[in-house]
Nucleic acid binder design. Structure first.
Length: 292
DNA sequence: TCCTCTCCTTGCTT
DNA sequence: AAAGCAAGGAGAG
């Protein structure tokens, strides 16, 4: 265990409970010893304490892992500035103010794409279970104290896996989508390179994947490909919009995307996170309650 | 081009 | 306990 100090203004903007378990990432587990997850080839256990973070990791040392964790948590984002930029009305203000430490994550694009292919008409506990099943079946084991976790398998490890085998892991109708995604990424799609592409360039590439429509493309871009203007609209965000922004509630998906970019700006994706989390955890609040 | 409807799996919740 | 619901997408009409 190694302690890494963090500046108070950074620390006050990190809420691991809302960040790690809010439906952007699916392989963190909350234990009595801390938050346990897998980053690349390493298992991590992290605890936020006064003044910084305690980090355990294996097989790599915490000194090597910490910069990766910092990148994963997007500590390079100036969250205060971003929150100020998207804080354009009393409704989003209330959502932001409820979760000042809720952050976007910078995830691995492949794992993120697979997770959101799994997410179609599913729910967070089940997505977690499926992702863990894929890792358990095809990843590499890493022993960490008394527990064993698994790396998430890259496409090269899944290239010979059948649709039937994926179905047996509980993927349902999404199994054939994963078979296609494995082939496409293995053969020609360089997901990591899409980090350098623009939002407009990346969108049509992701839409070529069977089982990936606008929403899942937006999730992949926002959570792993550095497209912070991406504004995924799922049932919860749609609910939040229809209740809190009735003036645009009848817009199509594409029109809502454009509206969100115009309205919230280039960090619209952060606004989406706050709206999603607020609507999901705090429930319906009538727009009149925002009168300030 | 764009909307609407149905189907696709499964497990957790009420 | 049967029905509803869950970070949707594809295809038909």
């Amino acid at each position: 265990m190694v302690f890494f100090p963090l500046a108070p203004e950074v620390l006050s903007k990190i809420d691991l409970d809302s960040t790690l378990y809010s439906g952007q990432s699916f392989r963190w587990r909350s234990t009595e010893q801390g938050h346990c997850g897998v980053l690349g080839d390493d298992v991590l256990r992290i605890n936020l304490i006064g003044g910084g973070v305690d980090l355990q990791s294996a097989p790599s040392d915490p000194e090597y892992v910490f910069p990766r964790l910092a990148s994963y948590l997007r500590l390079d984002d100036d969250l205060t500035a971003i929150q100020n930029e998207i804080d354009v009305d009393s409704r989003i203000h209330w959502a932001i103010d409820s979760y000042r430490g809720l952050r976007l994550l910078r995830q691995d694009p492949w794992e993120c794409l697979v997770a959101f292919i799994c997410s179609a008409t599913s729910n967070i506990p089940r997505i977690s279970r499926t992702m863990e099943a894929i890792a358990g079946a095809y990843g590499s084991p890493i022993d960490f104290g008394s527990e064993r976790r698994y790396t998430f398998p890259g496409p090269e490890r899944l290239i010979d896996v059948s649709e039937r085998a994926f179905r047996e892991l509980g993927m349902g109708f999404r199994a054939r989508y994963l078979v296609s995604a494995v082939e496409m990424v293995h053969q020609k799609f360089d997901l990591m390179r899409m980090r350098e592409y623009s939002y407009e360039e990346t969108y049509p590439l992701l839409l070529q994947f069977p089982g990936v429509g606008e929403k899942i493309a937006d999730c992949t871009m926002l959570f792993s490909l550095e497209k912070l203007r991406a504004f995924p609209i799922d049932r919860w965000v749609h609910r939040a919009i229809s209740e809190w922004y009735p003036e645009v509630s009848s817009f199509s998906y594409r029109d809502l995307q454009n509206w969100a970019f115009d309205y919230f700006g280039s960090y619209a994706g952060y606004a989406q996170m706050y709206l999603f989390h607020a609507r999901r955890t705090l429930g319906h609040i009538n727009a009149s309650a925002f009168a300030k």
